Simulated assay, not measured.
Amino acid sequence: MPVHEERFAPGAPCWADVMVDDLDRARDFYGALFGWTFEDPVPEAGGYVMVRKDGHVVAGAMARNPDDPGQVNAWTVYLATDDVDETAARAAAAGGVFFLEPMDVLEVGRIAVGADPAGAAYGLWQSMEHTGTDLVDEPGALCWAESMSRDYEASTRFYADVFGYRLQETGEGGVQYSVARLEGEEPVAGIGAIPAQAAADVRSHWMVYFAVADCDAAADRVTSLGGSVVQPPFDTPHGRLSVVTGAQGETFSVMQLPAAAAEPAG
C-alpha cells in the first residue's frame, strides 16, 4: 500500500477537495463509490470535512455557499509549495490570479487558491501538520492530476516558470500533451490542450484522477449512484480510465492502474 506521509515535492499535486451543495449526498455517493468515510465538519475550519480511505486521509470536502455565485460544485487540485506567499507572488507575476490570498488554516498548513492564465483553477498548499494525501496510487486514492487548457502554450509556460516543471511533449496525432517532471525522473502531472472539437462550455481546468480496481465497474457504479459518465472507459498506455461526474455535477476521472487489474473491484 503506497502510504505517503512525508512532504510532497514543491510543484507536485498533493491534495484534492470537492465543493458541493450537499455534504450528506456527497458522503453517500463517494462512500459507496470509493469506500470513503467522512469525518465530522470542523466549525473552526469553516465546516471543512476530512475524508479517509482505510484510515488514511485522502481528500477533503466542503459545502458550497449558496450566496456566493463564484462557487460551483467542483474538485480542486492543490500543488505543494514550501512557501505559499513566494509561490503566489511568482504566479501573479506570471499572469495568474488569486481568489483566496495566502492564509493560514489553523495549524495544519497555509493555503491560496487561484487560476492560471488560461483560467484553470488550482490551489497551493504549504504543509505544516497536514502534508496532503496519505495514500496514493491505490483504489480510492489520488493517482494523477493534469491541467487541461484552452491556451496550451500559456499553460505550459506558466507551470514551467512558476513551478519549475520540466515538460516532455508526449501527444501524438495532433494531440498536444506534456508530462511534467520535477527533480526526479517520475512524472508528477500533465498539461494538455482541450481538443478543438470539445464543447464551447468546456473551460480550462485541473482534472483529478482517483485509482480504482476496475474502471468499467466504477463507471457503472457512478451512474447507479446518480452521477454520469462523460467519457466511457477506454484504454491508455498508463491504464484504463473514464471521465465521470458525481451526483452533484462535479467532474473527475477514475483510472484502473495496470497493477490494480487483478484486484477486486472497489
Rank of each mutant, 00 (worst) to 15 (best):
V175T: 14
A160Q: 14
A74H: 11
G266T: 11
D83N: 13
E250K: 13
V208L: 08
Q176D: 13
R27Y: 01
F38K: 12
R90I: 11
S149T: 05
D104Y: 09
L100M: 15
D82K: 08
R52H: 15
M19W: 05
V20W: 01
E107N: 14
E44N: 03
G227D: 00
P13H: 02
R240E: 09
Y165V: 15
V108G: 06
A94T: 08
E101C: 00
A89H: 04
C215L: 11
P195H: 02
S242Q: 11
T133F: 07
A115V: 13
A26R: 02
G190N: 06
A218V: 08
P195N: 05
G123K: 10
A219V: 12
V51T: 10
F34I: 05
N65A: 10
V84P: 02
A259N: 13
G173I: 01
F98G: 00
G184M: 09
S228A: 15
G184E: 14
G47W: 01
M255E: 12
Y152M: 03
T37E: 15
R181W: 13
D83M: 07
A74P: 14
E146S: 14
A80L: 04
L33G: 04
D54Y: 01
E185I: 01
L124K: 06
F8G: 08
P117G: 04
A261S: 09
V18P: 13
G184V: 07
M62G: 15
E101P: 00
